[in-house]
Design a protein around this nucleic acid. Structure first.
Lengths: 136, 136
DNA sequence: TAGTGCTGGTCTCTTTTTGAGACTGATATA
DNA sequence: TATATCAGTCTCAAAAAGAGACCAGCACTA
């Protein structure tokens, strides 16, 4: 446990040293992380990790996403190289979205986080309840 | 690699089965993930993983966060149990923010993702460049 | 033949979230 | 007396997200 903290500490020193002024505003990690830490990005990656889906299927799978945000998020994920978009010349035309190799590679670490979330859901909910109780 | 995909697949089946209707809208993982996948949350967790910081220090460390969002994000992280807030009765009063045990526990997997981001920053930038080139 | 539904989106309008920046008030410093 | 620091809050403008109508092309049905 200590070794983990030590290693991250040296990492973060590198980020800060790299940006020159002791801040992490233009750290390269931010550039990548902000692309996948949106409300919908990680969710869609998670869905597509299971298997390729078509636009309408994703829409039904994630009912509370608007069509507008689904289009836009998939577009952004495609731009960053995580998602492949393929149009099939059926009538009406169908579009399939799937993870690229880069996307699957990223899903490895992301999945660790998802597992943590599942394991610690109760702890987080308890913390919220305790916090709200003292605040009232 | 294959074993990883198989295991995630079974996991996702559980999420979908749990929600009953084949969607992941009310999956418990979302509840946790959305709290840490904001523009600023992961960044502040990352900073606090190094060492505790005071409000003004965080503000200088992340120069492009507004004071308003710093207050709000720290508040949310505290509510979810990741961050501890301690007020010292100095004059003027100082406030120190640090990770809780839960926060440090969550930073483990998050750090894996940060490492991936650092390693694959170039690949993502290349994907963006390629995408933008074909789009023009 | 007119009506309906499906496909994957776009367009517009409204609501929510975020950002920019002035302001607080007690205290130390010049 | 003037100025700066602390950790915020408040207000207003700008940006982002959500809701829902609308699109073209084709298949199926009445």
């Amino acid at each position: 446990m200590d070794s983990k903290i030590v290693s991250l500490r040296s990492k973060l020193e590198i980020y800060k040293a790299g940006s020159g002024g002791g801040n992490i505003a233009d750290c390269p990690v931010r550039d990548v992380i902000q692309g996948i830490s949106n409300k919908w990005s990680s969710l869609l990656i998670m869905a597509l990790a299971e298997k390729p889906y078509r636009f309408g299927e994703l829409r039904r799978l994630v009912p509370d996403i608007s069509q507008r945000m689904l289009t836009q998020t998939l577009h952004d994920l495609q731009r960053d190289g995580y998602v492949h978009r393929e149009v099939f010349p059926t009538k009406p035309p169908s579009v399939e979205y799937s993870l690229t190799d880069l996307g699957r590679s990223m899903f490895g670490p992301l999945y660790q986080l998802l597992q943590w979330a599942e394991l610690n859901h109760d702890a987080v909910r308890a913390a919220r309840a305790a916090f709200d109780a003292t605040e009232t």
